[in-house]
Simulated scan of single mutants.
Amino acid sequence: MTGPNDWVPAGIDVNQPSAARVYDYFLGGAHNFAVDRALAEQIAAMTPNIGETMRSNRVFLRRAVRYLAAQGVRQFLDIGSGIPTAGNVHEIALEAAPGATVVYVDIDPVAVEHSRAILAGTQGTGVICADVRDVDRVLAESEKLGLIDFDEPVAVLLAGVLHFVPDADGPASVVAALRDAVTTGSYLLISHATADGQPPEVIEAQRLSGRTATEIVLRGGTEIATYFEGFDLVEPGLVFIPRWRPDPEDPVDEHPERVGAYAGVGRKN
């Protein structure tokens, strides 16, 4: 008989909150524990729209993957993918472009192991346990899987991951290394938390994120835009998440800044 925690790899401390599991909880997932839910509820009590922010980020990712597939992209490198939930990149990509390949990359062993379990037997998908800051490893292991050919256009997805990279580790240099590895016609997707237009309680919620292994670093739109150096931003540019190519049936709230995050997609020129 299996137990409720059988999907957790050996050595994982389920008494320490995990950023990936907190995110899973906000998305309505089932792969989280009481300690994750307690931290999530504490953050939500201070910033009631945090769940909306995370769900908006996931909806943006789905819209963007459909857009990228429509542009002819058939390779997706999703770095900082987290724990899979319904409507993940591979599901959207394979529906829009049968034969597409997807490599998921995450540093959290729980996210990685559960991804591998979910994707077992799914053609064209692979999972890597690696840090976004270790670009050489990400690139080498992606090629080793035989799913990414960097001589062909690749969509590099950095959805909600760069704000976990502290300034001391040079997020701009991480993006630059990824840019240099992909060919012309490749795309870069970024969504990133920001303090722009946010009330003081957002800063306090940021402090609470420090209780997980990955503290969130809020950055301004001007700085985030510099990460797209070498890419041409597609319309509408770098905007608050709800304003990035919303579906007609999803009207944009008159205060899209409430989600507290920017989103953009660029094409390598």
Rank of each mutant, 00 (worst) to 15 (best):
C129S: 12
N269R: 11
G210F: 11
D136W: 02
L77S: 02
A19C: 08
R207Q: 15
V175W: 05
T101M: 02
L189Y: 05
P166R: 07
V35H: 12
E152R: 15
G230C: 09
N32Q: 01
Y25M: 00
G3I: 01
H114V: 00
V154K: 07
P171R: 13
I83G: 03
A100K: 05
A96G: 04
A40M: 08
L77Y: 02
L157P: 08
G266C: 13
H192L: 09
R245M: 10
S115C: 13
R133W: 05
I107Y: 13
M54P: 00
R179E: 14
P98C: 13
P251R: 06
S209W: 15
V217H: 15
D253C: 01
D167M: 13
D169W: 06
N5S: 06
G11M: 10
A159H: 07
A181N: 12
T214H: 14
A213V: 02
Y262H: 14
E113R: 14
E223C: 01
H31K: 13
E91R: 07
D149S: 14
H114I: 01
W7N: 03
S115I: 01
M54L: 15
G72L: 09
P199Y: 11
L119G: 04
R37F: 00
L188V: 07
G160E: 10
V112K: 10
G126Y: 04
V35L: 02
Y262A: 07
A19R: 01
T2Q: 15
T212L: 06
T122H: 11
V174R: 12
Q206I: 02
P242H: 03
P171E: 06
G264C: 05
D106S: 10
A172P: 05
A30T: 00
